[in-house]
């Protein structure tokens, strides 16, 4: 419970305008709902299940630009995050075989990030697992005033400027971070997820 600040949370509440990533970057959990080109012939390709790999690019997971590469001009600082999938460098394999591969991408002012977070960022872009560490809902909410990621299921809140640490709600751990780099103006995965994606298995 290293990051669980439920008992001393001071950032909670007021009346924030929660925006949702839904309108911007909608993710279909059923892969068949995504008309991505890479996938059509490769439904059973096990590489679709693999977590984002170093060298993968990121593409929009839904919305008007679904399937398009996320490039440097895609977001302004402080814009609502978008949901994304990783795709291999040849763009043949979209890693959308499991919803656990969903990524959220946000762009923030690097001067507001702590050192660890900054080390994963590229031109202010940050990528995290979109899978809430509480009960694995998709983290689709954004509280712009506080620049906080919000999970609509049980109100967990994560601070993306501080490695997505938990700043509210029941989530026990930060979201897993996905290191990024910028290559020719395109967002590329620079390292594997840091931290566990999703919730801890309940042990018996």
């Amino acid at each position: 419970m290293s990051n669980d600040r439920r008992t001393d949370d001071k950032t909670c509440c007021c009346d924030p305008v929660r925006r949702s990533l839904l309108q911007l970057g909608a993710v279909a959990t059923a892969a068949a709902l995504l008309p991505g080109k890479a996938r059509a012939d490769d439904e059973d390709d096990p590489r679709r299940m693999e977590r984002p790999q170093v060298g993968d690019f990121l593409v929009y997971a839904g919305g008007d630009q679904e399937g398009a590469l996320i490039i440097e001009g895609a977001l302004n600082v402080g814009d609502e995050p978008v949901l994304a999938w990783a795709t291999d460098p040849s763009r043949k394999i979209l890693r959308d075989g499991t919803r656990l591969n969903q990524i959220l991408v946000v762009r923030l002012d690097p001067s507001t990030m702590d050192a660890e977070t900054k080390s994963h960022a590229a031109a202010g872009f940050l990528a995290y697992s979109a899978i809430c560490t509480h009960m694995q809902c998709t983290v689709t909410g954004w509280i712009p005033e506080k620049q906080i990621l919000h999970c609509p299921c049980h109100q967990s809140e994560y601070d993306p400027r501080h490695d997505a640490k938990v700043v509210g709600g029941p989530a026990p751990r930060p979201l897993a971070a996905l290191p990024l780099r910028m290559v020719d103006g395109k967002l590329q995965v620079a390292g594997e997820f840091i931290g566990k994606v999703g919730m801890n298995k309940q042990t018996m």
Binding site: L22, A26, V27, L33, C137, T138, T140, P152
Partner: peptide, 18 residues
Amino acid sequence: EKQKLVVGQLWLGADADH
């Protein structure tokens, strides 16, 4: 608030928790 229905995502059509 108008929210697009996305299969498998929470769809309240409202800002809850108040």
